[in-house]
Structures are given as structure tokens and as C-alpha cells.
């Protein structure tokens, strides 16, 4: 049973990590907790749904091997990531950037809460509350070891998630953009003085965060289901993962996501599946009590 907990925890943890990266980056760069981040997950998933429908007529929707999805979903994933990144940038340009200029920090948090409600309710309005699926095929399970199994879908998407997270980590560490993002996070004024276009960095951060969230959404939608609250329900685990990992740290968000994923999976046999989200809250409280800076964060 422990083995299955590990499998479930790791696969879920990868998804939470993907979502938490964008959250931790915008939190660190812009100094506010974006409650609308979950909606990038939701919109990414639903956009991919629309795109699979549209692309299916063009590319044919044949699944690959034993997976429930095929190239159509993967293409839709790429497009949904691009579109959701643009959505994130648009939200910042239309709403958050203007509020930043006016200088009221509380307005940002409330506005993000309001934007979250609006975006979520828009999905409800368009798609209704009914759960939806990318495919109604049965997912083939693969036995990894005695007592440990995962579906092929999960394994492939987990691989995709790993590649994305690794790519993001490399970007932060070894590219000029990554250096610029870290400098701008630490000291935006000084970053401008060393020639960094901080406005462009802000847009880039939103774009990447939104795109990764969309990937998390497709992952969730493909392995579980699509619901209008899917992203919002992940907000608490995402915040917990970001805080646990240390605000602003991409490896931290990944590690935090993994730990939260494992903790939630471990809680299921102990407390029942309904209390999963409460686990994140307990982890969050523990982190704030013991080490508020998180695993990879600097002490404030």
C-alpha cells in the first residue's frame, strides 16, 4: 500500500509542482498572492478540450497505443499552454498592472480573488457544472511493482510534466531571461539600472506561469476529469507547495509539490479521500510555525 501511496503522491505531486512554479514566481516578483492562479489551470484544461475537438477533425483523434489520448491532445496541450500564457499576460495588463501603478497592495489580492471568481464562473456558464472528459476510453493500468500501479496515461503525462519542470529549472539557472527574472525578483529597481527590462520580465513570468498551469490542468483533466472548480480546488495545495518550497524558488515549488502530493496521498488511507485538501492546510501551518522561509527560501 505504501508503494501505491508513493505512485499516487509522485504523479499528483508533479502536477501540483507544475502549478506551483507559476504561483511562486509571480508571488516573488510581484509581491502578491495571486488567487486567480488556479483559473489558469482550469482555463488551460478547458481550452485544451475545445482544441482537441477542433483539431480532432483535422488530425484525426486516434489515440497512441494504449493511451486514451493521441497526438491531438498533445498538440492541444501545446496550444493551450500558449493561449493560457497569453491569458495570464492579458489579466496582468488589464487588471493587475494598473492596480500596481496605483500602489494599493490589498487591491491586488482582492482583485485576484474577484478575477478568480469571474474566470471560474465564466467556465461554469459556458460549460455548466457537469464533469467533462478528454476521452471516454478506459485507461490501461500498468503494474510497476507488486502493489504499485499507474495508468499509462499517468506515466506519459508525468514524463511530460518532468520535462517541463526541468526545462523551467534550466531556464531559470542558465539563460539570460532566468537571470533577469531572479534579479528583478530580488530588486526590481536595481535590475532596471543594470539594463534589465523589468516590464518584459514581468510579462514573461506571467506567460511562463500561465503556460505551466495550463499543462497542470491538462494533466489533471486527462487523468481525472474536468470541472469548473478543478483549478480553484488546487489553490490551497499550490499555495502550500509554494510556501513550503520557499517563495521564488522553482526547485522549491517542485519539491514542495512533491511533498504535498505525497502527504495528500498518504492522508487518503488514514483520513479518507475527502480530507485531502485539509492536509495542505496542515502542512502550510506547520511550515509557517517552524520555518516560514520554506525549504529553499531565504530567512526574511
Amino acid at each position: 500500500m505504501i508503494g501505491q501511496v508513493v505512485v499516487d503522491g509522485v504523479t499528483n505531486g508533479a502536477m501540483i509542482g507544475l502549478g506551483a512554479i507559476g504561483l511562486t514566481l509571480t508571488y516573488s516578483l510581484l509581491r502578491f498572492a495571486n488567487f486567480a492562479h488556479g483559473e489558469f489551470i482550469t482555463w488551460g484544461a478547458y481550452l485544451a478540450l475545445l482544441l482537441t475537438g477542433a483539431l480532432g477533425t483535422v488530425l484525426g483523434g486516434a489515440p497512441i497505443g494504449d493511451l486514451t489520448f493521441g497526438w491531438t491532445l498533445l498538440a492541444a496541450l501545446a496550444l493551450a499552454m500558449a493561449l493560457t500564457g497569453a491569458l495570464a499576460v492579458a489579466l496582468d495588463t488589464l487588471l493587475f498592472r494598473r492596480l500596481r501603478r496605483q500602489g494599493t497592495e490589498i487591491a491586488l489580492v482582492i482583485a485576484s480573488f474577484g478575477a478568480s471568481l469571474a474566470l471560474r464562473s465564466a467556465v461554469e456558464f459556458i460549460f455548466s457544472l457537469q464533469p467533462l472528459y478528454y476521452s471516454h476510453d478506459i485507461a490501461m493500468a500498468v503494474r510497476l511493482a507488486p502493489g504499485m500501479q499507474a495508468t499509462e496515461d499517468q506515466l506519459v503525462l508525468f514524463g511530460v510534466a518532468l520535462v517541463l519542470m526541468l526545462g523551467m529549472h534550466l531556464l531559470m539557472r542558465h539563460t539570460a531571461l532566468g537571470r533577469a527574472m531572479r534579479a528583478a525578483s530580488e530588486n526590481p529597481l536595481l535590475a532596471r539600472l543594470v539594463g534589465i527590462d523589468v516590464a518584459a520580465v514581468v510579462r514573461g513570468t506571467w506567460y511562463l506561469g500561465g503556460a505551466l498551469a495550463a499543462a497542470a490542468g491538462v494533466f489533471l483533466g486527462a487523468t481525472v476529469q474536468l470541472r469548473p472548480t478543478m483549478g480553484f480546488d488546487l489553490l490551497l495545495p499550490l499555495f502550500a507547495a509554494a510556501v513550503l518550497g520557499g517563495i521564488g524558488s522553482v526547485p522549491g515549488a517542485m519539491a514542495g509539490g512533491l511533498i504535498i502530493g505525497l502527504a495528500e496521498a498518504a492522508a487518503v488511507p488514514l483520513a479518507g479521500a475527502q480530507y485531502r485538501a485539509a492536509v495542505s492546510f496542515l502542512v502550510l501551518l506547520a511550515v509557517l510555525l517552524l520555518r516560514p522561509a520554506g525549504l529553499f527560501g531565504k530567512a526574511d
Partner: peptide, 21 residues
């Protein structure tokens, strides 16, 4: 904009927070 001036040969040292700590 400020971030372009350094390439033009103008460098500014602010009073506070003037290094990446």
C-alpha cells in the same frame, strides 16, 4: 526608459538597496 540608459553610457547608483544583497 531606465533600463536602456546604461547601454547609452549613463550609470546610476541609488541611495538605498543599491546592491543585489
Amino acid at each position: 526608459p531606465a533600463h536602456r540608459l546604461v547601454r547609452r553610457g549613463l550609470a546610476f547608483v541609488p541611495q538605498n538597496e543599491n546592491v543585489f544583497a
